[in-house]
Write a protein that binds this DNA or RNA. Structure first.
Length: 570
RNA sequence: GCUCCCGUAGUGUAGUCCGGCCAAUCAUCAAGCCCUCUCGAGGCUUAGACUCGGGUUCGAAUCCCGACGGGAGCACCA
């Protein structure tokens, strides 16, 4: 038995020594030995001694000898294997295949952004993982926020992300049911109608003081509730009887229902008493069969309230989980920040390519699959972090690169006359490796357009190459740019530049930069680059994403022959 | 102010629940080289982290205590 463990210790001491310059470290070795062998009746002390001795012995050998011996004993330990990272979501606690139900509950008050994408993708993905069901529920319990157009707009955004759902409904469809639960709470003495001034409520909550309404009889409570519903009292709310001295201030008798006299986009003026998030969220998750509701961290303090309500009503409790909000550097997600920019005309709308709205991302050529991969790479931890948009770009580039056509675009174009240039009809393929993407043929003469900065780098007499076409020697560089044909054969070390013939397409490319630097709006966040693209570009359709060589990936909009580009990234 | 949550390379992230195959994963970024008729992609290499201080233990990124730092809540918004 001791022999066995000695042998193991020897092997790992050798491995450790080989890995770290001939010096084995007993601490590391003992760990491995215990991990592989298990303790099996040995005390850690014994193993420690054995490992220590093994290290001493091994360290006396030369590195070459160590390697040699390890090769004989356990050659597989010689190669350091690369660990693979698995980017799928971690397993869901308390989950059973076929029985998981998740939900995405947006308020129909705006367009979806990347934060919503994270939530919905996580919800959807877990339902998929467990062959469960995924519900989309519009949390439209505040008629002051809900707007008709957003119900469909949000669904459209979700579909674009590749998300589908098993069930869709509105919380506002269930108000009657919410009323029944409210009544039950009042009857049980777990809720009461309060007509205190909002400021007074706030004060009491802060100081942990109860108000008089808290102690009214149930009979009276029901009456007052009915009055709330029929409009005969105003300024009333229904509050949960929590604990006004609870350390968690969310439990200091939170409001469950309030009066909002505003026409609802779906329910019209049918109701004037509306449940709050605390109430509606808990009730809906429970009665719709959701097993694993996710929400963002800022609700964490409300968990207690969520469960208290379900407790009082004897309703099933879902397994509630939280994760951190997603924030991206320089790209605010909140309506509070975006809305003023739109109102002041600083961005064009909710689909401005500088915005992290799904429509904005789409506009600049970010693919839904890239967003999904990005979300998976972020995971669902509670650590708050600010991500660089570069991570989204990197994911997008990996998807785009093998499938995007390569085309020529010349920004800041200058005219170049090439003397003695052979007239050609040149076939140039759309992709450097994937020939299946096809090719275009370009008819060339002696007039070209090239980028002015490229030309600045060249002196008279220099030879450069019009990529995929011919070499050109610079003859003149003053008012006019004149070159001379210098052969067809590729010169490996020559500068290869993109070009167009005089048969070009005028195009503006909008390059989005960070909207904010720190807290300040970046006045130069949208750069407009004008240039000429090769004629082929006029054949592109809206939403085509191509790469302009040495420029970057660009999404095209072709509106009745007028071409605009939106820069995605390099 | 009170309460809660969180602290791993420049930025993200795995590992933390259940201490030992962790002198710590992967991506991104940066630097360098190779490859390429793009400044893209690909390949290779290098650099870079467990917030700090105590404790428990043969052994701590992991458990305990404390400090510090960041975030959130204290709405008749969600």
């Amino acid at each position: 038995m001791t022999d066995k463990i000695k042998k193991i210790a020897r092997i790992y001491a050798l491995q450790n020594a080989v890995q770290f310059n001939g010096k084995a470290e007993p601490k590391a070795v003992i760990g491995k030995v215990i991990a592989v062998h298990g303790k099996e009746g040995f005390s850690p002390k014994e193993i420690y001694q054995i490992s220590g001795a093994a290290c001493l012995d091994v360290n006396r050998l030369s590195l070459a000898d160590q390697r040699h011996e390890l090769e004989k004993l356990a050659p597989e330990l010689l190669v350091k294997e690369k660990k693979e990272r698995d980017f799928s979501l971690p397993p869901l606690p308390n989950a059973e295949k076929g029985k998981v139900v998740t939900r995405f509950p947006p308020e129909p008050n705006g367009y979806l952004h990347i934060g919503h994408a994270k939530a919905s993708i996580v919800d959807y993905e877990y339902a998929q993982m467990y062959d469960g069901k995924f519900i989309i529920r519009f949390d439209d319990t505040n008629p002051e926020n809900a707007e008709l157009k957003f119900y469909d707009a949000q669904k459209k955004d979700l579909r674009w992300l590749g998300i589908s759902w098993n069930k869709e409904y509105n919380t506002s469809d269930n108000i009657q049911e919410h009323y029944k639960f409210a009544e039950q709470l009042i009857k049980q003495g777990n809720a009461y109608v309060c007509t205190c001034e909002p400021n007074f409520v706030k004060e009491c909550r802060f100081e942990g003081r109860e108000c008089n309404h808290r102690h009214c009889e149930c009979e009276e409570g029901i009456d007052r509730w009915k009055q709330m519903l029929d409009g005969s009292i105003n300024g009333a709310v229904l509050r949960l009887k929590g604990d006004m001295r609870c350390e968690n201030t969310a439990m200091r008798d939170p409001t469950l229902f309030r009066i909002i006299e505003k026409r609802h986009p779906l329910q019209s003026d049918k109701y004037r008493v509306w449940p709050t998030y605390d109430f509606a969220g808990a009730i809906e998750d429970s009665i719709s069969g959701v097993t694993h509701p996710f929400r963002t961290k800022e609700y964490e303090l409300r968990d207690e309230c969520y469960f208290k309500i379900l407790d009082f009503l004897g309703l099933r409790k879902p397994y509630l989980m939280e994760f951190a909000r997603l924030s991206i550097e320089g790209m605010p997600v909140s309506k509070r920040k975006i809305k003023p920019l739109i109102d002041q005309g600083k961005v064009s709308g909710f689909d401005d390519p500088r915005l992290p709205t799904l429509q904005g991302l789409k506009k600049r050529g970010i693919l839904p699959e890239a967003i999904r991969q990005f979300v998976f790479s972020q995971g669902i931890s509670k650590v708050e972090s600010t991500v660089t948009f570069g991570l989204v770009e990197a994911a997008n580039r990996k998807i785009l690169d093998p499938i995007s056509k390569r085309l020529f675009f010349v920004s800041n174009p200058v005219k170049l006359k090439v003397e003695k240039a052979p007239h050609k009809i040149k076939d140039i393929s759309f992709h450097p490796t994937d020939k299946k993407l096809g090719s275009r043929s370009i008819k060339t003469g002696d007039i070209f357009y090239v980028n002015a900065e490229d030309m600045k780098k060249l002196k008279i007499g220099d030879i450069f190459r019009l990529k995929d076409l011919i070499n050109v020697k610079i003859l003149k560089k003053n008012n006019e740019l004149i070159g001379e044909y210098a052969g067809d054969k590729l010169i490996a070390e020559s500068l290869k530049i993109q070009w167009t013939t005089n048969n070009f397409v005028k195009i503006n490319v909008y390059v989005p930069h960070l909207l904010f630097t720190g807290d300040k709006y970046n006045e130069n966040s949208l750069e407009k680059i004008q240039g000429y693209a090769e004629e082929q570009v006029s054949k592109l359709k809206t939403d085509d994403i191509i790469q302009f060589e040495r420029f970057g990936f660009v999404r095209i909009e072709n509106i009745k022959g007028s071409i605009t580009g939106f820069f995605a990234h390099k």
